[in-house]
Amino acid sequence: MNTNTNTKENTAKDNPVKSIIKAFGLLDIFIFEDLERKGIGLVELSKQVGIKPNTLHNILKSMIKCGYVVQNSEGKYAAGLKCAKISMVNKLISQKLLYDVLLPRLKVLRKAIDENVTFAVLSNGKRYGIFSLEADKPVKAVAEKNNSSIYSVVTGISLAVYADDEELQKIIEAYGYPQGICNIEELKAMLAKKQKELYYTALQHNDELETFGVSVILTSDGTRIVCSAGVYMPAYRCNDELRQKIINELLQLKTDLERVDLY
Protein backbone atom coordinates (compact mmCIF):
# COMPACT_ATOMS: atom_id res chain seq x y z
CA MET A 1 0.00 0.00 0.00
CA ASN A 2 1.30 3.46 -0.91
CA THR A 3 0.92 5.41 2.34
CA ASN A 4 2.28 8.62 0.79
CA THR A 5 -0.50 8.63 -1.81
CA ASN A 6 -3.15 7.99 0.85
CA THR A 7 -1.76 10.79 3.01
CA LYS A 8 -1.93 13.23 0.10
CA GLU A 9 -5.52 12.20 -0.70
CA ASN A 10 -6.62 12.61 2.93
CA THR A 11 -4.91 16.00 3.15
CA ALA A 12 -6.67 17.16 -0.03
CA LYS A 13 -10.02 16.06 1.38
CA ASP A 14 -9.45 17.86 4.68
CA ASN A 15 -8.30 21.16 3.16
CA PRO A 16 -11.20 23.49 2.28
CA VAL A 17 -11.16 25.49 -0.97
CA LYS A 18 -9.86 28.90 0.09
CA SER A 19 -11.74 30.91 -2.54
CA ILE A 20 -15.06 29.40 -1.41
CA ILE A 21 -14.26 30.16 2.23
CA LYS A 22 -13.52 33.76 1.22
CA ALA A 23 -16.78 34.03 -0.75
CA PHE A 24 -18.86 32.80 2.18
CA GLY A 25 -17.01 35.18 4.49
CA LEU A 26 -17.96 38.06 2.20
CA LEU A 27 -21.55 36.84 2.14
CA ASP A 28 -21.63 36.89 5.95
CA ILE A 29 -20.55 40.54 5.89
CA PHE A 30 -23.11 41.58 3.27
CA ILE A 31 -26.00 39.78 5.01
CA PHE A 32 -25.27 40.29 8.70
CA GLU A 33 -23.26 43.53 8.86
CA ASP A 34 -24.62 45.69 6.02
CA LEU A 35 -28.15 45.56 7.44
CA GLU A 36 -29.32 48.71 5.63
CA ARG A 37 -28.04 47.32 2.31
CA LYS A 38 -26.17 50.55 1.53
CA GLY A 39 -23.25 48.56 0.15
CA ILE A 40 -19.54 48.46 0.93
CA GLY A 41 -16.78 49.85 -1.30
CA LEU A 42 -14.03 47.62 -2.67
CA VAL A 43 -11.18 49.33 -0.77
CA GLU A 44 -13.05 49.26 2.55
CA LEU A 45 -14.05 45.64 2.00
CA SER A 46 -10.47 44.71 1.09
CA LYS A 47 -9.18 46.14 4.38
CA GLN A 48 -11.96 44.45 6.33
CA VAL A 49 -11.33 40.94 5.00
CA GLY A 50 -7.60 41.17 4.28
CA ILE A 51 -7.87 40.24 0.60
CA LYS A 52 -6.03 42.15 -2.13
CA PRO A 53 -8.39 44.36 -4.21
CA ASN A 54 -7.67 42.53 -7.50
CA THR A 55 -8.35 39.12 -5.97
CA LEU A 56 -11.39 40.44 -4.13
CA HIS A 57 -12.77 41.99 -7.32
CA ASN A 58 -12.59 38.64 -9.13
CA ILE A 59 -14.40 36.85 -6.29
CA LEU A 60 -17.11 39.53 -6.25
CA LYS A 61 -17.59 39.25 -10.02
CA SER A 62 -18.31 35.54 -9.63
CA MET A 63 -20.74 36.21 -6.78
CA ILE A 64 -22.52 38.86 -8.87
CA LYS A 65 -22.85 36.41 -11.76
CA CYS A 66 -24.47 33.88 -9.41
CA GLY A 67 -26.89 36.49 -8.04
CA TYR A 68 -25.61 36.55 -4.46
CA VAL A 69 -24.06 40.03 -4.71
CA VAL A 70 -25.03 43.23 -6.54
CA GLN A 71 -23.04 46.36 -7.32
CA ASN A 72 -25.08 49.52 -6.83
CA SER A 73 -24.95 52.82 -8.72
CA GLU A 74 -22.21 54.08 -6.38
CA GLY A 75 -20.01 51.09 -7.19
CA LYS A 76 -20.49 49.55 -3.76
CA TYR A 77 -21.25 45.88 -3.16
CA ALA A 78 -24.25 44.48 -1.28
CA ALA A 79 -26.27 41.29 -0.81
CA GLY A 80 -27.98 40.30 -4.06
CA LEU A 81 -31.47 39.20 -5.03
CA LYS A 82 -30.64 35.53 -4.48
CA CYS A 83 -30.10 36.26 -0.76
CA ALA A 84 -33.53 37.89 -0.55
CA LYS A 85 -35.09 34.89 -2.31
CA ILE A 86 -33.48 32.52 0.18
CA SER A 87 -35.05 34.58 2.96
CA MET A 88 -38.44 34.38 1.23
CA VAL A 89 -38.24 30.61 0.82
CA ASN A 90 -37.31 30.27 4.50
CA LYS A 91 -40.39 32.29 5.42
CA LEU A 92 -42.55 30.21 3.11
CA ILE A 93 -41.45 26.88 4.57
CA SER A 94 -41.48 28.12 8.15
CA GLN A 95 -43.62 26.17 10.61
CA LYS A 96 -45.84 29.19 11.26
CA LEU A 97 -46.66 30.00 7.63
CA LEU A 98 -47.07 26.41 6.48
CA TYR A 99 -49.15 25.02 9.31
CA ASP A 100 -50.79 28.11 10.84
CA VAL A 101 -51.65 29.96 7.63
CA LEU A 102 -51.37 27.88 4.47
CA LEU A 103 -52.56 24.42 5.51
CA PRO A 104 -55.78 25.62 7.25
CA ARG A 105 -56.79 27.57 4.12
CA LEU A 106 -56.10 24.58 1.88
CA LYS A 107 -58.21 22.38 4.17
CA VAL A 108 -61.08 24.86 3.87
CA LEU A 109 -60.79 24.65 0.08
CA ARG A 110 -60.73 20.85 0.07
CA LYS A 111 -63.77 20.69 2.37
CA ALA A 112 -65.70 23.12 0.17
CA ILE A 113 -65.21 21.08 -3.01
CA ASP A 114 -64.20 17.62 -1.69
CA GLU A 115 -61.60 17.13 -4.42
CA ASN A 116 -57.81 16.86 -4.40
CA VAL A 117 -56.00 20.12 -3.60
CA THR A 118 -52.33 20.90 -4.20
CA PHE A 119 -49.99 23.81 -3.51
CA ALA A 120 -46.63 24.32 -5.22
CA VAL A 121 -43.77 26.81 -5.31
CA LEU A 122 -41.34 27.90 -8.02
CA SER A 123 -37.77 27.47 -6.80
CA ASN A 124 -34.62 27.52 -8.94
CA GLY A 125 -36.71 27.06 -12.08
CA LYS A 126 -38.58 23.96 -10.89
CA ARG A 127 -42.02 23.21 -9.51
CA TYR A 128 -42.00 21.79 -5.99
CA GLY A 129 -45.21 20.55 -4.39
CA ILE A 130 -45.52 21.60 -0.74
CA PHE A 131 -48.95 20.20 0.11
CA SER A 132 -51.26 17.67 -1.54
CA LEU A 133 -54.59 17.03 0.19
CA GLU A 134 -56.70 14.14 -1.09
CA ALA A 135 -60.48 14.10 -1.42
CA ASP A 136 -62.56 11.91 0.91
CA LYS A 137 -63.87 9.83 -1.99
CA PRO A 138 -63.23 6.23 -3.06
CA VAL A 139 -62.12 7.25 -6.57
CA LYS A 140 -59.26 9.74 -6.44
CA ALA A 141 -57.24 11.48 -9.11
CA VAL A 142 -53.51 10.76 -9.40
CA ALA A 143 -51.44 13.47 -7.69
CA GLU A 144 -49.23 15.78 -9.73
CA LYS A 145 -45.57 14.79 -9.43
CA ASN A 146 -42.62 17.09 -8.78
CA ASN A 147 -40.72 15.61 -11.72
CA SER A 148 -43.51 16.41 -14.21
CA SER A 149 -42.67 19.02 -16.83
CA ILE A 150 -43.64 22.46 -15.60
CA TYR A 151 -45.54 22.96 -18.86
CA SER A 152 -47.60 19.77 -18.47
CA VAL A 153 -49.54 20.63 -15.29
CA VAL A 154 -51.69 23.68 -14.59
CA THR A 155 -49.91 24.43 -11.32
CA GLY A 156 -46.70 24.46 -13.35
CA ILE A 157 -48.06 26.88 -15.95
CA SER A 158 -49.40 29.00 -13.07
CA LEU A 159 -45.81 29.30 -11.85
CA ALA A 160 -44.13 29.85 -15.21
CA VAL A 161 -46.32 32.81 -16.21
CA TYR A 162 -44.92 34.91 -13.34
CA ALA A 163 -41.29 33.77 -13.50
CA ASP A 164 -38.75 36.59 -13.72
CA ASP A 165 -35.97 36.47 -16.33
CA GLU A 166 -33.60 34.54 -14.06
CA GLU A 167 -36.21 31.96 -13.10
CA LEU A 168 -37.36 31.66 -16.71
CA GLN A 169 -33.82 30.84 -17.80
CA LYS A 170 -33.69 28.17 -15.07
CA ILE A 171 -37.01 26.76 -16.32
CA ILE A 172 -35.61 26.49 -19.85
CA GLU A 173 -32.48 24.76 -18.54
CA ALA A 174 -34.62 22.26 -16.62
CA TYR A 175 -37.45 21.61 -19.09
CA GLY A 176 -36.48 23.12 -22.44
CA TYR A 177 -39.25 24.77 -24.45
CA PRO A 178 -42.88 23.63 -24.64
CA GLN A 179 -44.09 22.04 -27.86
CA GLY A 180 -44.37 24.58 -30.68
CA ILE A 181 -42.07 27.13 -28.99
CA CYS A 182 -38.58 27.57 -30.46
CA ASN A 183 -36.91 30.38 -28.50
CA ILE A 184 -37.15 32.50 -25.37
CA GLU A 185 -38.90 35.39 -27.14
CA GLU A 186 -41.72 33.08 -28.24
CA LEU A 187 -41.92 31.60 -24.74
CA LYS A 188 -42.15 35.05 -23.14
CA ALA A 189 -44.91 36.03 -25.58
CA MET A 190 -46.87 32.87 -24.78
CA LEU A 191 -46.52 33.37 -21.02
CA ALA A 192 -47.44 37.08 -21.27
CA LYS A 193 -50.65 36.07 -23.02
CA LYS A 194 -51.34 33.43 -20.38
CA GLN A 195 -50.70 35.94 -17.58
CA LYS A 196 -53.84 37.84 -18.60
CA GLU A 197 -55.94 34.83 -17.58
CA LEU A 198 -57.21 34.70 -13.99
CA TYR A 199 -57.04 30.91 -13.78
CA TYR A 200 -55.95 27.88 -15.81
CA THR A 201 -57.76 24.66 -16.65
CA ALA A 202 -56.81 21.56 -18.60
CA LEU A 203 -57.92 18.03 -19.40
CA GLN A 204 -55.11 15.51 -18.97
CA HIS A 205 -54.43 11.78 -19.15
CA ASN A 206 -56.61 11.15 -22.21
CA ASP A 207 -59.24 13.58 -20.91
CA GLU A 208 -59.76 11.50 -17.76
CA LEU A 209 -58.35 14.14 -15.40
CA GLU A 210 -59.62 17.71 -15.10
CA THR A 211 -57.29 20.22 -13.45
CA PHE A 212 -57.55 23.82 -12.28
CA GLY A 213 -54.84 26.23 -11.14
CA VAL A 214 -54.21 29.82 -10.05
CA SER A 215 -51.01 31.79 -9.49
CA VAL A 216 -50.32 33.04 -5.96
CA ILE A 217 -47.68 35.77 -5.55
CA LEU A 218 -46.37 36.12 -2.00
CA THR A 219 -44.34 39.26 -1.29
CA SER A 220 -42.22 40.54 1.57
CA ASP A 221 -39.96 43.59 1.74
CA GLY A 222 -39.96 44.06 -2.03
CA THR A 223 -39.14 40.42 -2.76
CA ARG A 224 -41.63 37.95 -4.16
CA ILE A 225 -41.99 34.21 -4.45
CA VAL A 226 -44.22 32.61 -7.07
CA CYS A 227 -46.61 29.88 -5.87
CA SER A 228 -49.63 28.11 -7.29
CA ALA A 229 -52.73 26.42 -5.93
CA GLY A 230 -54.55 23.73 -7.84
CA VAL A 231 -57.41 21.26 -7.86
CA TYR A 232 -57.43 17.97 -9.77
CA MET A 233 -60.23 15.44 -10.09
CA PRO A 234 -61.65 12.70 -12.33
CA ALA A 235 -63.24 14.48 -15.30
CA TYR A 236 -66.50 12.51 -15.09
CA ARG A 237 -67.27 14.15 -11.71
CA CYS A 238 -66.93 17.70 -12.99
CA ASN A 239 -70.07 19.51 -14.15
CA ASP A 240 -70.50 23.19 -14.98
CA GLU A 241 -71.75 24.09 -11.50
CA LEU A 242 -68.86 22.37 -9.71
CA ARG A 243 -66.37 23.76 -12.22
CA GLN A 244 -67.47 27.33 -11.46
CA LYS A 245 -67.42 26.66 -7.72
CA ILE A 246 -63.83 25.37 -7.91
CA ILE A 247 -62.72 28.43 -9.88
CA ASN A 248 -64.41 30.79 -7.40
CA GLU A 249 -62.87 29.00 -4.41
CA LEU A 250 -59.39 29.06 -5.96
CA LEU A 251 -59.63 32.77 -6.74
CA GLN A 252 -60.75 33.45 -3.16
CA LEU A 253 -57.81 31.41 -1.85
CA LYS A 254 -55.47 33.44 -4.07
CA THR A 255 -56.88 36.70 -2.67
CA ASP A 256 -56.61 35.49 0.94
CA LEU A 257 -53.02 34.25 0.63
CA GLU A 258 -51.74 37.31 -1.21
CA ARG A 259 -52.91 39.42 1.74
CA VAL A 260 -50.87 37.38 4.23
CA ASP A 261 -48.18 39.29 6.12
CA LEU A 262 -45.04 37.15 5.91
CA TYR A 263 -43.38 38.85 8.87
Rank of each mutant, 00 (worst) to 15 (best):
S148V: 10
V108N: 08
A160Y: 11
L103C: 13
K126Y: 07
I130K: 00
V153Q: 07
D136F: 14
A135I: 01
L159R: 11
S123Y: 12
L168Y: 07
S132I: 09
V121Q: 00
S148G: 12
P104H: 08
L98V: 04
K126T: 13
L97A: 14
K96E: 13
A163D: 09
Y151A: 08
V142S: 10
R110M: 10
S149F: 03
K126N: 05
F119V: 00
A143I: 11
A160L: 08
I150M: 04
S158V: 06
T155P: 03
N124L: 05
G125D: 01
I130D: 00
Y128I: 05
T118F: 13
L133K: 01
L98P: 12
V142A: 09
K107H: 15
D100M: 14
A160R: 14
V117L: 01
E134F: 09
V139H: 03
L133P: 03
V142F: 09
Y128K: 12
K145P: 08
K107M: 15
V154R: 08
K137Q: 05
K137Y: 06
P138Q: 05
E115S: 15
P104S: 07
A163P: 10
D114V: 03
E144N: 09
R105C: 14
D136Q: 12
I157D: 04
K111M: 15
Y99V: 05
L103R: 02
K96I: 15
A163G: 07
Y151K: 05
R110Y: 13
R110P: 06
A135K: 04
E134T: 05
E134I: 07
K107R: 15
L109V: 15
S123E: 06
L168F: 04
L168S: 14
S152E: 11
V121L: 00
K126Q: 08
E144T: 14
D100W: 12
F131Y: 02
A120M: 04
L133G: 01
L159T: 10
L159G: 04
E144S: 05
